[in-house]
Structures are given as C-alpha cells and as structure tokens.
Design a protein around this nucleic acid. Structure first.
Lengths: 229, 229
DNA sequence: GTCAAACTTTTTGTATACAAGAATTTGATT
DNA sequence: AATCAAATTCTTGTATACAAAAAGTTTGAC
C-alpha cells in the first residue's frame, strides 16, 4: 500500500473529476480541498501536477488549477485514436498472442456471454474491461499496452454512457466472439478491422453517444464568443 | 513567459535526462539539485511529479526519484507505436488536409531537399521535425496531433542517433516526396503505408539503431539477475 | 571474520510561514 | 450612477521546519 497523501489525493480528485463532481472550467480551491482531505497544500499541489499531465486539469500560472472536461468533438477525436490503437493491438495480437493469454481471452468472452444472458450489465461492463485489457496485453508490446490502457481509462466515463444503450450488450458480445475467432485463426486483418469498428464511434453509436454526452455532467462549457446585436 | 521555477526546473531536468547526463537508475538527489538550480525542494518535487508522469523518471515512495532510460526493446516498442500513429495521421491527412497546410508541407519538403543537397544535416533535422509535426496537424484530429507530438518528442534523442547514418538523409527525403504526393492525390492508403515504413524500425535501420543505442548514454542498465556457478 | 542489534545520519513527505501576484473592494471623482 | 485608482484581501509559488522512514555506521556477540 502506498502511504503518500499526495497519491491518495490525486486518486480521489481524479475520481471526482471523472464522475462529474466539478463543472468544466471550475477552479480547484487549494485551501478548501486541503481542509476536505485533511492535508496541507503541499501534497495537494503535487497531485495537481500529475492531473495536469494527464489532461484532467489545466494549470494556469498564478491563477490556479481548472478542471477541463473534453468538448464533444474532443471526445470523438479521442475515440478515433482509441479505435486505431485497439485495431493495432488486434493486428499484432493475431500474430503474437501466446496460448495462455488466448485461453484467458476465451474465458473472458465466455464470462461476457454469461453476463449478457443474465442481463447483468455491471458484470458485462467488468468483463468487457478485462477483455480489452487482455487484447492490449496480447499485442506483445508493453509500451502499446500502457498507452492503450491509459487512453482507455480516460475514456471510461464516456464508454460507460454508451453501454447503457439497449441492445448494445448483445451487439458488443457478437463482436467479441468475432475478435476471438480472428485471434484463434491468426487472421490479423479481421482482428484489426473488427476491433476498429467495435471501438469506433460511427453510425447509430454517434447519436447515442451525443445524447448521453449532453445529459452528462462532463460537458465542456461552450467557449464565450462575442455576440452581435 | 512562465515565471514558475518548477517549470524551469522540469525543463532543465528533462533536457539533462534526455541528453544522457544521468545514468539509468540514478537517483535524483533533491538537495544537491535544489542547490544547483538555486531553488528549494518544493518546486523541484513538483517537477519530479510531471517527469514521472511522462515516464522519464520513476518515483519510488520514500525512496526517491530514479531516472529511467528505455531498454532497447522498449525503444523498439515505442517506435512501433510511433509508426502506427504516423500512419494513421497520414491516412486521415490524405482525406482531410486543408490547402494551406498542404502548401506548408510542400514548402517544408522543399526545404528538406535544399538542406539535403547542401549536406546540412542540422538543417535537415529541423525541417524534418517540422514536416512530421505538420503531418500530425494535417490529420485534423487535435488529440491525435497532441499524442503523436508527445511520443515524437520522447523519441527525439533516439531519432537523432538514426539520422547520422550515411545515406539516410536522401532516403528520408525520397519518402517525404512520396508522402507529399499521396497527400496531394488524396491517396490515403499510400500515405499510410509510406509513412509507416518511413518511421518503422526495420531492415537495415534496426541494426543502425542498435549500434547507436549501444554507444549512447541512454542505455538502460541490464536487470540484475542471479547467476549460476 | 560474520552477522545482527542499536545508534546515527540522511532523506523523504508534509506542514507551515511568508513574499509577491491576482482578484476584489472601497472610495474618490466625474 | 459609472469609472477608475488605491487599498485590501485572497491566492499562488517557494522557502523552511520538522517528523518519520530509510540508509548507513558502530558495536558487540559468537
């Protein structure tokens, strides 16, 4: 266990930001937060640095730390990159996956199926996370695994929105099976293509995502523009 | 201009690490560095946090900050991801590039050519950086642009090694022309393929890179393993 | 000579103090 | 009442102080 207060505070703030507890552009008040977490400003400010590095807050010199939610178009851009990273993982995995990792993926897809049939969306969510992480691992490129995982984490709150949509779970499961099959057969092109489409925001998914984005607490403030008469 | 000492210190440390002034695994002595930079430990430690976030140092709780150079295989992995990100930028750029950005790319390729013919390898290096950054911009995906730029920056010291190799400059220039042509024609497949091969470490480039890696100050210490009799 | 326990020194993590810059209020002036 | 500058308050950035953990050293038993 990590005993550094700075790390606890960072995790707590990360969670708070990602669950929409702060509005876009809101200033993180050092003194108030220090009291709330029962720490001094020192570890709090160390946490701010890390949050800024991951893009969750913006640090304006001598002004403070301001939370930064992605605008809708930024979220779409992030998903576009995520789709490509996963597609790449799939392409590599089809060639490089080891028997034990493949077995683990198979088990996870089965678990997804069980959750889907039971209508257990929380369970499905959990197994889905495992599935994707294992695809990253299967790529055999640890740096890629880390980057993919980092972006995956960043997109977590938005993905959660998406999975609520009716029928999405069964659709997702079918695609998992296709991906698994492609890996078993070493078919890198299929693995790549199916994974890309699985993650990409396109067709109906675009509208679903837009709808839940607009309802969420993670909206960016529209930029202030000068209006005419 | 940014007046925060923490930022100055971070930049200075980044430069020192990337130019091999510290050995892999070396501890960054807070007190000594604080004296050297004429600051207290507070801004120094804030700098450590962001260096850790970017992977340049590793923070071990209650132990300190240790510089972390990538092992050879890690560097290869990073180049593998870089190649894919650039390929993706190229694919998008072929469809999305705006006339003004395209004109700027054309100008930069011409500048590359001039530098190559003049045998000005520093000039070529500079224009090459500009070329790649503009490809990222041309993708029309600002998040992708940022991520690509971030990784590009991280690989900078290793790319610098590679460009010293004889004949590499002319080869590189030819590929730039091919990429430009593909963008002009909106040929996303060619743009993607040529960019991937342009960046990827493969064939002779692998051996060139390995040779310069071994000579450099950026080697990782081989992990300590127990030896048998 | 080796090992371990007790101690000393060094170093990290956090609290606090304080100066300088930003925001806000006040008050004078129009 | 609106505007602007001086004064005041608040906030950030950095230095310093201090407790607790880790590393290093000494001492003593075997």
């Amino acid at each position: 266990m990590n005993t550094r207060m700075a790390d606890h505070v960072r995790e707590a703030l990360e969670q708070m930001i990602v669950t929409g507890e702060f509005a876009d552009g809101e200033r993180l008040d050092e003194i108030r937060l220090a009291e709330r977490f029962h720490v001094s400003r020192t570890p709090l400010r160390e946490a701010f640095q890390v949050l800024a590095a991951s893009g969750l807050v913006e640090l304006l010199p001598r002004r403070g730390a301001f939370v930064r939610h992605p605008a809708f178009h930024e979220m779409i851009e992030m998903f576009e990159v995520m789709a490509e990273l996963e597609a790449f993982c799939g392409r590599l995995a089809a060639r490089r996956v080891t028997p034990d990792v493949l077995a683990a993926i198979r088990a996870t897809v089965d678990a997804c199926e069980a959750a889907a049939h039971a209508g257990d969306s929380d369970g499905y969510y959990r197994e889905n996370e495992r599935f994707h992480h294992m695809i990253y691992t299967a790529s055999g490129n640890e740096f890629l695994e880390g980057e993919a995982q980092r972006l995956h984490r960043r997109l977590q709150p938005f993905r959660r929105m998406q999975l609520r949509v009716r029928g999405r779970m069964v659709q997702s499961l079918t695609e998992h099976r296709q991906i698994l099959d492609a890996l078993e057969e070493g078919d890198s092109t299929t693995a790549e293509t199916v994974l890309r489409d699985h993650v990409a925001v396109q067709g109906g998914k675009f509208n679903d995502l837009m709808a839940s984005y607009k309802q969420s607490n993670l909206r960016a403030k529209p930029p202030l523009v000068a209006m005419r008469g």
